[in-house]
């Protein structure tokens, strides 16, 4: 860290109090303290405080861990919650399938020959695939990093043919990491990636989509939730490992910013 011949600094004294002074600095610092007994006293006082702090918390550290903090118990209650949620999702998918089958039948009756897949569903699938592919990337999660935000946004806007701006999700704890261009059935899709202090990643997926405008639709696969909607010729999907109630306000914020 510091070379042996450098003058004594506050960081030397801090490191000394923490027993982390590099060996080559020790003689210099020891000589300094011998010449400055007041400073030596100060360092001793700091060490005494640290030891007192450790002592006062030792009992807490040595306490048996309550059973509610056992990982097995926490994981079990998590699983129970997930199962309930999955059951709800399964039930709603079943309803969706019944609705779609019914709708499809009617459609075949009224519009023979017309057969495009429901736009929002293919959008969610594409967004989810993109999320799953890139969210686990450690080295290159994004093509262009947020440091070049102006360049990133200009580039993505050009590729998907819509003037974009990166929604500011700071109040939800998510910071822009960057973005990339992805292939899509309609040409190109843009993906913006955000992360928070927990290391959770959130993606905003946008592509040209000619489907009719839709309200928010929700989909969940494993830990990952997606909200999607179509608006003025573009499809949007927000994916993150959050539950529905936490993702909804974020999706609304993105909707507001991109619709403006």
């Amino acid at each position: 860290m510091t070379a042996p011949q450098m003058p004594i600094g506050e960081d030397d004294l801090t490191a000394l109090a923490d027993d982390r002074l590099p060996a080559e600095r020790r003689p210099v610092v020891a000589a300094y303290l011998a010449a400055h007994p007041d400073v030596a006293l100060r360092v001793e006082a700091d060490m005494a405080q640290r030891d007192a702090l450790r002592a006062s918390l030792a009992a807490k550290f040595n306490e048996p861990v309550p059973s509610r903090l056992r990982i097995a118990n926490i994981a079990a209650s998590r699983r129970a919650r997930l199962t309930t949620r999955l059951r709800l999702v399964a039930a709603s998918l079943l309803l969706l399938a019944i609705g779609a089958a019914g709708g499809w039948g009617l459609r075949a009756l009224s519009l023979p020959g017309a057969s495009e897949p429901p736009a929002a569903i293919s959008l969610a699938g594409a967004a989810f695939d993109a999320y799953r592919t890139f969210v686990v990337e450690v080295a290159h999660p994004v093509e262009v990093r947020a440091e070049n935000e102006a360049h990133l946004i200009g580039w993505l806007s050009k590729r998907i043919g819509k003037p974009l701006k990166a929604p500011d999700l700071g109040r939800f704890g998510f910071r822009l990491m960057g973005g990339r261009v992805l292939p899509a059935s309609s040409g190109a899709a843009a993906m913006l990636m955000y992360d928070n202090d927990l290391g959770a990643r959130l993606t905003v997926y946008i592509r040209a989509d000619k489907g009719a405008e839709t309200a928010f639709q929700f989909r969940r696969e494993g830990d990952v939730s997606t909200f999607m909607w179509l608006d003025r010729g573009f499809g949007f999907a927000i994916s993150a490992p959050l539950d529905r109630t936490r993702l909804l306000p974020i999706a609304e914020a993105v909707y507001k910013e991109t619709a403006a």
Binding site: L69, I71, R78, V136, L198, G199, A200, R201, D223, P241
Partner: peptide, 16 residues
């Protein structure tokens, strides 16, 4: 601590 562990488990795949 319980909140911390729950969050750690739900983000376990995303940890560094």
């Amino acid at each position: 601590v319980q909140d911390t562990l729950e969050r750690a488990l739900s983000h376990w795949m995303l940890r560094r």
